[in-house]
Amino acid sequence: MEQVDFKKMLKDMLGVAKTEFSDYWKEVKPYAEKELKSFLDNVKLIAKLKLKNTINEEQAKLHMNLQINSMRMVFLTIEGLGLLAVQSAINSMIDIARNTVNTAIGWTIL
């Protein structure tokens, strides 16, 4: 267990997340960082319980599955937040264009 560099793992995982969600990374970084840290803490604890034989190998795998599932949920949410951000930006641009055209025409036509 001592051989696992969890700090490096966190850094690498954050690096991948930053690349994948680059367009809106600034907004989601605190959330991603918090959840990845918590994920790694739990992975450390699972390893500790396995080493102490409090849980067997099958239980360790089941616990890991739960943790991985929770991270998949987090990344899906980040993807959703990104889509909402893009959607909001596009609709704001359309609103600007609509207002500009309406002002130019002098009627509320669009």
């Binding site: 809106y24 907004e27 989601v28 959330y31 959840e35 918590s38 994920f39 739990n42 604890l45 699972i46 319980l49 616990h63 739960l66 943790q67 599932n69 929770s70 991270m71 949920m73 987090v74 899906l76 949410t77 959703g80 937040l81 990104g82 909402l84 951000a85 909001s88």
Partner: peptide
Amino acid sequence: IIKSAFNTSFIALVKLQMAKKQGKTN
């Protein structure tokens, strides 16, 4: 550890629902 996994999962679910409700990203 189990509680933590379920909390993370439900926070993820609720966070997206709240963002949809507010129509913003954070």
